[in-house]
Computed example of a mutant assay.
Amino acid sequence: MKKILVVGSLNMDSVIRVHNIPVPGETVLAQGIRQVPGGKGANQAYAAAKLGGQVAMIGAVGDDAFGRQLKDNLAAVGVDISGIETLTGCPTGNAVIPVDDRGENAIVVVPGANAQLTTEMIDRHIRLVDECDMILLQLEIPLEVVAYVKQLGKARGKQMILDPAPAKAGLPDDFFAGFDIVKPNETELQTLLGKALPTPQALQEGARALLQKGVRAVIVTLGEMGAWMVTNAGVQTFPACKVTAVDTTAAGDSFTAAFAVARSRGESDADAIAFGNRVSGIVVTRPGAQTSVPTMEEVAGLR
């Protein structure tokens, strides 16, 4: 099995249950709040390890209780946390996540230590880059670090996967060039391209625009509609599992992690996407981020 390295964020999530997510100027009452380990990078590392992957992570937390909890939670499923640095005088990243009765969410992230990740930190843990076969990146850490890790990974022949969230408009073409896989959802794809893509045809054309920036394949996740894989050879459609969503937090992260684990086992892109759909189909039926990730046995039982 190939080794996976995740370079990214670690947050403690404050998940708030509400009947409806408030609009500007509205006050709503919550049914409850709980703290759940999260952060896009940590979610992917945790999910990949729990699904049987060989996983290491590079990131940063603060010297506080949240930071210790997040590292311990990753270590508990076998993630190599030697590349996660603890920074003094800086809080651990955290996120506030209201979740409504339909399972939909909104996320506000306070970066904390994630914003302090530097290229020098990457260099201090270059051993993890050298030892891995595949690198997963997201956009909750500084963009210069993402670009630097991509450069290091491509020079060493690693498979590079970008989950472009939180999506940012106006990124230059060379930021995308060299990624093997870019995995936006439909909202993120529109943000990346800086324009509305109101129809399936427009979304597919948007994915092709990323291919023109030097990406090998674009996987667009579509929630209950499943996913597309768009390459220069065409578009493949992958149906979602039929489930009742409770909380969509970490569904995209779990899909990315599952895809990476399947690829690390030598499965094709198509089989890896189908596996990702099964995993995320379970995740949305449970509350929270890392707490919602299934075991391999649970995934095998899903039809």
Rank of each mutant, 00 (worst) to 15 (best):
M1V: 12
G8R: 07
D13G: 10
V18F: 08
V28C: 04
A30N: 12
G32E: 04
I33Y: 00
R34A: 12
Q35M: 15
Q35L: 13
G38Q: 11
N43Y: 03
Q44F: 06
Y46C: 05
Q54K: 15
M57T: 06
G59N: 13
V61G: 06
G62T: 07
D63G: 11
A65C: 02
A65F: 10
F66G: 01
R68L: 09
L70W: 07
K71L: 14
V77D: 13
V79M: 13
G93S: 10
A95W: 00
V99F: 10
R102C: 05
I107P: 08
P111H: 08
G112H: 09
A113V: 01
A113Y: 06
D123K: 11
R124E: 07
R127K: 14
R127V: 14
D130Y: 00
D130P: 02
C132I: 03
L137R: 02
L143N: 09
V146Y: 08
R156A: 11
I161C: 02
L162H: 02
P172A: 01
D174R: 08
A177Q: 15
G178V: 01
F179M: 06
D180P: 04
V182A: 10
E186K: 13
L192S: 07
G194W: 04
A196E: 15
L197N: 11
E205T: 10
V215R: 05
R216F: 00
I219L: 14
G223K: 12
M225W: 11
C241D: 08
K242C: 08
K242M: 09
T244E: 15
T248G: 10
A251Q: 06
S254N: 14
A257P: 08
A258L: 07
R263Y: 02
F275I: 07
V279L: 11
G281L: 00
V284N: 13
Q290W: 03
T291P: 08
E298D: 04
E298M: 10
V299W: 11
G301C: 14
